[in-house]
């Protein structure tokens, strides 16, 4: 091969780049967030089944946001009880942010900007 040195260096760099996922994860076992505990077919506040919430919750939150802020429709009734359409008061009222939200988000590399304004009790206090 001619100019072999340069070509091989180039190839090594190239292969190093494209195989990045393999060697960074070498020997690691990836740990995914815990599976759902409740039945995915059970209904959840907001009109979706629990099984759908993982992929669709952001849509519901977005919809709620408009309804509350722009429409002044703050409450939703589910299973006879009234809930507030609120990330901070509603969702985090039942689910713990760090356990419930952050695990999946950081696993999937999702950084929602909700937390720039909304926060869980006690979180980030200086």
């Amino acid at each position: 091969m001619y100019n072999g040195g340069k070509i091989i260096i180039g190839l090594i760099i190239f292969i190093a780049l494209v195989t990045f996922p393999f060697y960074t994860n070498m020997g690691k076992t990836s740990e995914q967030p815990a599976a759902l505990t409740s039945s995915p077919d059970d209904p959840h506040i907001g009109g979706l089944k629990i099984g759908q919430m993982r992929s669709e919750h952001m849509k519901i939150l977005d919809q709620w946001r408009d309804e509350v802020v722009r429409g002044g429709e703050r409450f939703i009734t589910f299973d006879g009880d009234q809930y507030e359409k609120s990330l901070q008061i509603g969702c985090l009222g039942c689910h713990a942010k760090q356990e419930f939200c952050d695990k999946c988000h950081s696993y999937a590399g999702v950084k929602p900007y909700c937390w720039d304004c909304h926060f869980a009790e006690g979180e980030g206090q200086l």
Binding site: N25, K28, S30, Q32, P33, S55, C104, Y107, A108, V110
Partner: peptide, 19 residues
């Protein structure tokens, strides 16, 4: 057409870790 991203990552991480 959403998919469950956590499961997708389970699959892709499985590929990356040869598991």
């Amino acid at each position: 057409i959403k998919v469950d991203i956590v499961k997708v990552k389970e699959l892709t991480m499985g590929l990356a870790t040869f598991k």
